[in-house]
Design a protein around this nucleic acid. Structure first.
Length: 839
DNA sequence: GCCAACGTTGGC
DNA sequence: GCCAACGTTGGC
């Protein structure tokens, strides 16, 4: 119990210390000292743990944490200690002061660092820890220190004897996000199982009665009355206004990210009508079981919060229950001014000065953001003084004046300055601030609506003004931290594609298998691959063979976002340069849509057989084995005699097409959508095509004709798992998506003249193939296409002949095909006559 | 550069 | 309270 009461106040300190420690230590190499320290740590073990922990609150040497039973954390810890010793003992190595690549790093990585920066904001101690200037510290920090505690996995663990020997417990205060300040309690079993919840604990402690165990505090209550759980009266944050929610929900409004005082969320929260001076709040800090619970006044009595509507912005009660006795100097996340007190913004994420808070408190609609707007005062919009009463803003304002108080569109400043030259967006050169000092309907404020509201505004906005006010682009200008926050967290999903909309896990992909509900160990902790956003998911998270592969620097990019690089090193600059050369931003500023631009396939280079083969082996494995073998065989002397399609899309592209189709198919299967809806799966492909500069030299008409056929095909029911897409050429490509199908490597390519060609494993059927005799030379209608596909389904791919002489058992078996192989043979045949003739 | 792992946060 | 899963790190 004592340990715990000590622990909580330590939290904040701990963070600072370890951050500083990290900073100092990161520059030290690991190497042999590590092993040595591992040994030392191993000797510590539990006997030292308690001692260490007791000293922890006072300790500033950063060695107050406990070694984890696992070797990994131990190793890290050992390194830390060693390095810590170095840093505390002397001056940092010279190269500490070598500059980062530049200050751009800050800017470049703003997005990346935001949450962390924020979470560290106010931890002024950190600069002291280094003894250098803050800026120096910051650079060092950025350069060397990971901001996460990954390198301190064993930090903060304290013995939890209640659960048995070897059990450890750790409280983690959320350092960012809308739930900042919230405490999560983790347990670590002697075996190293990390327990995140009571449920997990029960599963780990199978058979043990935990009914009297209070997870939060790590105590069993024997005969005592367990701490009554205060029923959450929490409502959605968004339903609250401004910092009221911060206080009411958390009861720790005075608790700041940098505060050393943490409140147990279940205590002291939801305290509204109380006298804050009744009891020191720190009586509840991390020690709900401290003293008699019955003596604790009702939670409601612990804090008295001034009503958020108070017109007098003044510091709110501090954490220890004395008004103003502990003035936290905070930096307003909105306007940047420092202020005293503990005001938080609406979403409880960031400090918010009273002014900004007051301004934002009327912001009731969660989807509407308000931004201070500085009108030009000269344009026609600015000269309009009367509301038109007709526009959507006026009408909506009449209906719900509180929720949508936006300026009449006729009164909007439409000054061209807003629109940067050729920018398509407005206000690129205009100063603005999202600081809302006051709120009214004056022209000084520009309402902003969410994306979903844009279309109506857009059409309306443009109707009477010569300057097209593109409301969509307002988002680009948003500096709303809340938005950034959410964007960052949400940027992996568009929320619109079918994968995003799909709620059902496939249960078979590796990510699903990893999930506890599927019996996995929860190590990967990723969303089902089939549910990864088709547009914005990281490539490596997409279904297999999607988003992977060895794409050349100028090659087409696979769907999905490039993997970000989070290396806090000077390599970043190089990477960025490379990234920009590749046409996408490798910085972490992924909110930038540059990564999401549709990619033209027209520039795709022909990939080497080698890399293609490798990639296929890696990505497609068994499913593509046949293809690979075929290629391999081709490389072994058969291809020369097989005519190539000169204008055929390159193998890479075909593969991409196939992947697209597979992805669509996967999503389709996962969502169990009916076939008729499948057309929606691949609009992206069409879009890609249409955005490519394919019409040059091919004739737009021809392309249009093909597109019409494509549309027709997509609105029709094709034979099962056949899919039509448009590819470079243009060519209409029909693919069999199912790997189970005998036609999985067969494609039908229709050119702008509607002449078609069938290819198998990228090899064209010889014109003499009997298949061609059964169907018209041109496929001008859906019916003709469907007939051909149905006809194809009666065929299978010629398997080729095994080599005459048995190869060494280690060698791959390469089936041989005749240069005149039919490729497609009737299903009951297996091997074509030409191949049979080889033997 | 890739990826397994996992700390952490959002949301139900 | 719990789980899903996002973002990041460190190892390879």
């Amino acid at each position: 119990m004592d340990e715990e009461t000590l622990e909580s106040p330590l939290q904040g300190t701990e963070t600072v210390e370890e951050d500083a420690g990290q900073n100092a230590e990161k520059n030290s190499c690991k190497g042999d000292t590590v092993e040595e320290d591992i040994g030392q740590m191993s000797e510590k073990k539990s006997s030292e743990i308690d001692e260490t922990n007791e000293a922890a609150p006072e300790s500033s040497d950063g060695v107050n944490a406990i070694g984890s039973p696992s070797s990994g954390p131990m190793k890290e810890k050992a390194t830390e200690e060693k390095e810590e010793a170095k840093s505390s003992g002397g001056e940092p190595p010279v190269d500490w002061f070598e500059p980062l690549e530049d200050d751009d790093d800050d800017a470049e990585s703003n997005d990346r660092n935001d949450p962390e920066e924020e979470s560290l904001a106010g931890e002024s101690e950190r600069s002291e820890s280094v003894g250098g200037s803050e800026s120096t510290f910051k650079k060092i920090y950025q350069l060397h220190a990971p901001r996460r505690k990954r390198s301190h996995p064993d930090e903060g663990w304290v013995e939890c004897p209640a659960l048995g020997e070897g059990w450890k417990r750790k409280e983690v205060v959320r350092r960012s996000g809308s739930s900042i300040g919230q405490k999560d309690v983790y347990y670590l079993s002697p075996r190293g199982d990390r327990v995140r919840s009571r449920v997990e604990l029960i599963s780990v402690l199978e058979g043990q009665d935990l009914s009297n165990f209070e997870y939060k505090t790590g105590k069993f209550y024997h005969g005592e009355t367990p701490l009554p759980r205060i029923r959450s009266r929490k409502r959605k944050v968004r339903e609250r206004s401004s910092s009221e929610s911060s206080w009411m929900e958390r009861g720790e409004g005075a608790d700041t990210p940098d505060s050393h005082h943490r409140l147990t969320p279940s205590l002291g929260s939801k305290n509204v009508n109380s006298n804050h001076s009744n009891a020191p709040l720190n009586s509840t800090v991390g020690s709900p079981n401290q003293g008699s619970h019955s003596e604790d006044p009702p939670a409601e009595d612990k804090i008295k919060l001034p009503g958020p509507s108070s017109s007098q912005p003044r510091p709110l009660p501090s954490i220890n229950g004395e008004i103003g006795s502990e003035d936290s100097i905070l930096i307003c996340a909105r306007c940047g001014i420092s202020f005293t007190g503990t005001w938080y913004d609406k979403q409880r994420k960031r400090p918010c000065c009273p002014s900004c808070w007051a301004a934002s408190k009327t912001k009731e609609h969660p989807m509407i953001r308000f931004r201070k707007w500085i009108p030009c005062g000269q344009c026609v919009g600015c000269h309009n003084t009367d509301n038109c009463g007709q526009c959507a803003n006026c009408k909506h304002g009449l209906q719900s004046p509180e929720s949508r108080r936006r300026i009449c569109r006729k009164r909007k400043c439409i000054c061209p300055i807003r629109k940067g030259p050729g920018s398509g967006g407005f206000m690129q050169q205009r100063p603005y601030s999202d600081v809302s000092e006051t709120f009214d309907d004056s022209m000084s404020f520009q309402g902003e609506v969410t994306d979903s509201q844009h279309p109506s505004l857009k059409s309306s906005d443009t109707e009477n003004f010569s300057v097209n006010v593109d409301v969509d682009d307002e988002d680009e200008l948003s500096t709303d931290d809340d938005d950034d926050w959410h964007k960052k967290r949400k940027r992996r999903s568009c929320g619109e594609c079918k994968a995003c909309l799909c709620r059902k896990d496939c249960g078979t992909c590796d990510f699903c298998i990893d999930k506890p509900k599927f019996g996995g160990s929860n190590k990967k902790r990723q969303k089902c691959r089939l549910r990864q956003c088709q547009r914005q998911a990281m490539r490596h998270l997409l279904p297999f063979q999607m988003g992977q592969g060895d794409y050349g620097p100028d090659g087409p990019l696979p769907p999905g976002r490039p993997r970000p690089h989070y290396t806090y090193s000077r390599k970043l600059g190089l990477k960025k340069t490379k990234g920009s050369q590749m046409g996408y931003d490798l910085s972490d500023n992924e909110d930038d849509d540059s990564n999401l631009q549709p990619i033209s396939w027209s520039s795709s280079p022909v990939r080497s057989s080698k890399s293609f083969f490798d990639t296929n082996v890696r990505n497609h494995q068994s499913s593509m084995q046949q293809l690979n073998n075929s290629e391999f065989g081709v490389q072994n002397g058969l291809s020369d005699s097989v005519p190539q399609i000169s204008n055929h899309s390159n193998p890479h592209q075909e593969q991409q097409n196939r992947w697209d189709a597979e992805r669509a198919q996967s999503a389709r299967e996962a969502t169990k959508q009916v076939v008729e809806e499948d057309e929606e799966e691949l609009p992206m492909i069409t879009q890609i095509f249409s955005l490519a500069d394919n019409s040059v030299g091919t004739g737009t008409d021809a392309e249009n004709h093909l597109m019409k056929l494509l549309d027709s095909l997509r609105s029709s029911v094709l034979p099962i798992l056949w899919y039509a897409i448009m590819v470079e050429g243009p060519q209409l490509q029909l693919i069999q998506c199912s790997k189970q199908s005998s036609m999985t490597d067969t494609m039908v390519l229709i050119d702008p003249g509607f002449f078609y060609q069938v290819t198998v494993q990228k090899q064209p059927l010889l014109p003499t193939h009997p298949l061609y005799d059964c169907y018209p030379a041109r496929l001008t209608s859906v019916t003709e296409v469907v007939n051909l596909l149905l006809g194809l389904e009666k065929y299978s791919v010629c398997q080729g002949m095994p080599p005459k002489e048995p190869l060494h058992y280690k060698d791959p078996i390469i089936l041989e095909r005749s240069s005149t192989c039919d490729f497609l043979v009737k299903k009951n045949v297996g091997i074509c006559n030409n191949c049979r003739a080889l033997h």
